[in-house]
Design a protein around this nucleic acid. Structure first.
Lengths: 135, 135
DNA sequence: AGTCAAATAAGAATAATTATCCTTTAAGAA
DNA sequence: TTCTTAAAGGATAATTATTCTTATTTGACT
């Protein structure tokens, strides 16, 4: 995958920092701001945390990145992929992408002979009827 | 609904503050810490923000409350109900509970002639195979 | 190469959450 | 009831998370 192209497609300026962020995010799968910052500092020793936040936020706004907010878990980020669910272990914190198969959703989302599902959370966002008509 | 019973069922001590929190949360439907704090201070003028956080967290841990973390939206809390999804308007912030009908999930979760769906997020949490077998 | 809007770094400022410490109180035992 | 104790409350400090400000630099496009 070519990060420069990806950034341009999303009308974002290509900078070494952004390419570095994407590269790191790609190899990590998903990552928190905290981890990303400590990783990225190795490559860009003087990068600022504010820069990281601004870049992450603009990439989230442009849908290049997806923000994942799981209960009892730090917000983390990933390069936007096909729709999928996230399984988060309440004990060890492991998290795992799960194919978004409609028929297996909710309690059936993961194999319950091996996983123990405690909670599911579904968030849909967009425009409500009011705001949609005002566009 | 009787909040004392509810608290006892979850093995939590019954205190006036907790009853007040639940009462407020029940009438609000869902509420942020910020709003809850400004409301609850009217009733318990000397309540501390830390107390609020401690109570909310223990009630979330006991599953009495559910924490809802939606993208671009402040974390809010509600008394745990039947599984359901949340629709959050990216424009006005309105949020609305949506019946968790498996067949309508994802893009079909809300009526797309009136809503405009931008993102869906599904989070499942519990124990991963490793942690499950270690129990 | 020259221009300019956008990005960066640095650090301050603000917001959100948790920890600490000491006092008070709910809940069950005596 | 009263006693005992673990848990809860309040005040505030500490930590963590996020955004803002300003001066400087740089990528993208003439």
């Amino acid at each position: 995958m070519n990060y420069e192209t990806l950034l341009k497609q999303h009308q974002l300026k290509v900078t070494p920092q952004r390419v570095g962020i994407l590269d790191m995010m790609h190899s990590a799968g998903h990552i928190t701001i905290e981890n990303l910052f400590s990783q990225i500092k190795k490559q860009f020793t003087s990068i600022s945390l504010a820069t990281l936040y601004k870049n992450i936020n603009s990439m989230v706004d442009s849908t290049l990145l997806t923000e994942v907010k799981a209960p009892n878990y730090k917000t983390h980020y990933e390069i936007t992929k096909e729709p999928h669910a996230h399984f988060v272990c309440t004990s060890c914190g492991e998290h795992k992408d799960v194919a978004f198969d409609m028929n297996k959703l909710c309690k059936n989302l993961v194999d319950e002979t091996t996983y123990e599902v405690a909670k599911t959370s579904v968030i849909v966002s967009g425009l409500c009827p009011n705001c949609k008509t005002q566009k």
